[in-house]
């Protein structure tokens, strides 16, 4: 079987991206199941390797096809030569770093669209730095949406114990409540269903959370459940999706953790983030579904306050690589596989 090629974008060179990337790399490489590589600047990666993974080296390559041939204990870097380490301001918002981070993602997106890599795993970039460099996106998700021409995409926060998919994410709570609409929820249920099919689930069991306390308690504490959520569940069931809900938000996550559901459709950012961060600690991976390519990401920021100190944890990057591998192969440990791109 061909090994999937997992391309890590280096993220903002002034943040913790290079550090977590090189620290996580040997773990994924050691599993001997994928071909990991980095899209970045080889000089930045070489500096990070020298500091944090002694004994390893870096090989600059032109294209992903060369990655499989590098020696052991070597990180292949598709070298964009766009970031001089002596010009990087560690821990600071800076358009120089913002532009470099943007170019890594843009390059990786092109490779993924051309089917030359199997998945993109992104290290964190800084929105403000990127915007100062003239790339006016709200972050990775909007950027990748545009680069891949996707119209609708959804955020999954995933781990082995609990997965959630968001009806809305980075909007105010007030706006999130307004976005609790049947059509939107149906789209999210469908996206969650397709995501799990890709992960190798035959008949994904999907729970839909309510919005209000006790899922509205029969209309006492809000009508969104009856007017918007329940019809969405019915529509999904009508097309053969195993959806259940609305379920009381304070009960549904425990049920999912206990194995009754494979994913929970959540109606606002914190409804999904609170439980995942509690049960999966550092292992919750951010996944954009609905794109024509596979993309996972660490679920932390650039950590400017700790950048360059060697104290950043690579656990989340290891999890992001693992999730990307599972999406790319449809093998979540059950042995099921689907053809690679």
């Amino acid at each position: 079987m061909n090994k999937p090629i997992l391309a890590i974008t280096l993220g903002d060179p002034g943040g913790v991206g290079p550090e977590v990337t090189v620290k996580a790399f040997p773990h994924e490489a050691g599993l001997d199941r994928s071909i990991p590589l980095v899209v970045g600047d080889a000089r930045i990666v070489a500096d990070a390797v020298a500091r944090w993974v002694p004994g390893w080296s870096v090989a600059a390559i032109e294209g992903p096809e060369e990655a499989a041939a590098v020696s052991n204990e070597t990180i292949p870097v598709i070298d964009l030569r766009n970031c001089d380490p002596s010009l990087v301001r560690i821990g600071e918002v800076d358009p120089y770093s913002g532009n470099a981070a943007y170019e890594y993602v843009a390059h990786a997106a092109k490779l993924a669209m051309d089917r030359r890599i199997s998945a993109i795993v992104t290290a964190p970039l800084n929105k403000e730095s990127m915007r100062l460099a003239g790339h006016m996106y709200d972050g990775h998700t909007g950027l990748l949406g545009e680069l891949t021409g996707a119209k609708k995409y959804f955020m999954v926060l995933g781990s082995d114990v609990l997965r959630v998919i968001h009806v809305s994410t980075h909007v105010t709570l007030e706006e999130a409540v307004k976005r609790v609409k049947t059509d939107r929820i149906v789209d999210t249920i469908r996206a969650g269903h397709e995501h799990l099919k890709q992960m190798g689930f035959e008949n994904p069991r999907i729970a839909v959370a309510g919005l209000n306390p006790h899922a509205g308690d029969g209309g006492q504490f809000g009508l969104e459940e009856a007017q918007e959520v329940a019809p969405a569940v019915e529509q999904a069931r009508a097309v053969g999706i195993d959806a259940t809900g609305p379920i009381s938000p304070d009960a549904v996550f425990r049920m999912a953790v206990d194995g009754h559901y494979d994913i929970v459709v959540v109606l606002y950012h914190d409804q999904g983030h609170i439980p995942v961060k509690l049960v999966a600690f550092e292992e919750g991976v951010n996944v954009t579904v609905g794109l024509p390519i596979i993309r996972t990401s660490v679920d932390h920021g650039t950590g400017f306050d700790i950048a360059g100190q060697g104290v950043a944890s690579e656990v989340n990057m290891i999890s992001a690589l693992d999730y990307a591998y599972k999406m790319a192969t449809g093998d979540r440990g059950t042995g099921s596989t689907r053809p690679l791109v």
Binding site: N212, P213, P249, D250, A251, F253, R254, V257, D270, Q271, I274, P275, L278, V279
Partner: peptide
């Protein structure tokens, strides 16, 4: 309500 109930129950 759920900002407290979700973490407690999880």
């Amino acid at each position: 309500h759920d900002q407290g109930h979700i973490p407690i129950k999880v």
